[in-house]
C-alpha cells in the first residue's frame, strides 16, 4: 500500500503551471519531510496526494485507487491533511466538539468516537483544553486541535503543513513524540516544513523541491551535505551542520553528538 505519484503535472485553471512531471512513491510506514522554497510547489504537490488537486497530466494512486475517480472527501478517509492555518478548519464551540465533528459526521458509534478522541487528544497533548473554546486558545495550540481532529478520523496517511510554525520548545517536543507514536500506530506521516532542525530530527526521508520539480529524495545527510541541492532548494543547513562545515569536520555531520565525538 502506498501513495504513488506517476508523471504528474499540475496546471491551475488560470493557466499557471505549478508542478512538472512529479514522480514519487510514499510507502506505508514512512516518514517523509518535503522541503524547499516557497513557490517550489510543495503544497500543490501534497494537495495532489489527497485529491484536492487532480493532476492535469499523469496519475496519483492512493492505495490502488486513482484520485481522479474519487471525491476529495472520500480520499480524505485515507489521506488526512492538516492545513497550515488551523483557523480555516476550526468552528466548533469546544475543543472536544471540534475533534469529534467529523466522527459524528460519519455517524460512528459513540464508543468508537470516545476511543478515537482519547487517542488523538493524548497524542497532541490537548487533554487539558477539551471544554475550552478552541478560539480562546493560542495559535500553536489551535494547531494541535486541528491536528487532533485529523488524527481522530484515523487516516492511514497524515499530511502536516508547517506544523512547527510558532511552536515553543514544548510544542516541538510534542510534535516529535506524536510523530513517533503515529508511526507505532502504523500511520505514515508526511510533512511540509521550513524548520530544518525538525526535519532532520524526525524524518528519515527528505524530499527537496525546487521550481515545480522534485530535485532530490534521500536521507538528511544526502540532502544537506549536497551543496548543489542546498542552494537550489534554498534551504538552510542546521546550525550544527553549518558549524561542522565551517570547521571542516569530515563525515557529513548534522547532529551535536557526532560533532562532539569528532572534535
Amino acid at each position: 500500500m502506498a501513495i504513488e505519484v506517476k508523471n504528474a503535472s499540475f496546471v491551475y485553471p488560470n493557466g499557471f503551471k505549478a508542478l512538472e512531471n512529479i514522480n514519487i512513491v510514499i510507502n506505508e510506514g514512512e516518514r517523509v519531510a518535503i522541503v524547499g522554497q516557497n513557490g517550489a510547489g510543495k503544497t500543490t504537490c501534497v494537495k495532489m496526494m489527497n485529491g484536492l488537486n487532480k493532476p492535469t497530466e499523469g496519475d496519483v494512486i492512493v492505495d490502488g485507487m486513482n484520485t481522479k475517480d474519487k471525491t476529495t472527501a472520500f480520499i480524505a478517509k485515507s489521506v488526512g491533511y492538516v492545513f497550515q492555518n488551523p483557523d480555516e478548519q476550526i468552528f466548533n464551540s469546544t475543543v472536544r466538539a471540534e475533534v469529534e465533528y467529523v466522527l459524528r459526521y460519519f455517524k460512528l458509534p459513540e464508543k468508537e468516537i470516545k476511543e478515537r478522541v482519547k487517542r488523538a487528544v493524548q497524542l497532541t497533548d490537548i487533554a487539558g483544553y477539551l471544554d475550552i473554546n478552541p478560539l480562546d486558545l493560542p495559535y500553536p495550540i489551535r494547531k494541535f486541535v486541528a491536528i487532533a481532529a485529523v488524527i481522530a478520523s484515523k487516516p492511514k496517511y497524515i499530511i502536516l503543513d508547517e506544523p512547527t510554525a510558532g511552536q515553543d520548545k514544548h510544542g516541538t517536543e510534542t510534535l516529535s513524540m506524536m510523530i513517533s507514536e503515529l508511526e507505532k500506530d502504523g500511520v505514515t506521516v508526511i510533512t511540509i516544513t521550513h524548520d530544518m532542525d525538525f526535519a532532520v530530527a524526525n524524518f528519515d526521508r527528505i524530499v527537496a523541491m525546487s521550481q515545480k520539480k522534485i530535485i532530490a529524495d534521500g536521507n538528511a545527510k544526502e540532502i544537506f551535505w549536497n551543496e548543489d541541492i542546498v542552494s537550489r532548494a534554498r534551504i538552510k543547513k542546521t546550525q550544527i551542520g553549518e558549524l561542522a562545515k565551517r570547521l571542516n569536520v569530515p563525515g557529513e555531520v548534522l547532529f551535536c553528538e557526532e560533532l562532539v565525538e569528532k572534535l
Binding site: F91, S93, N133, D136
Partner: peptide
C-alpha cells in the same frame, strides 16, 4: 446560531 455559539470568550 453556530457562529454565536463558537465565538471565543476573550472576544
Amino acid at each position: 446560531f453556530g457562529v454565536l455559539k463558537a465565538i471565543p470568550m476573550r472576544f
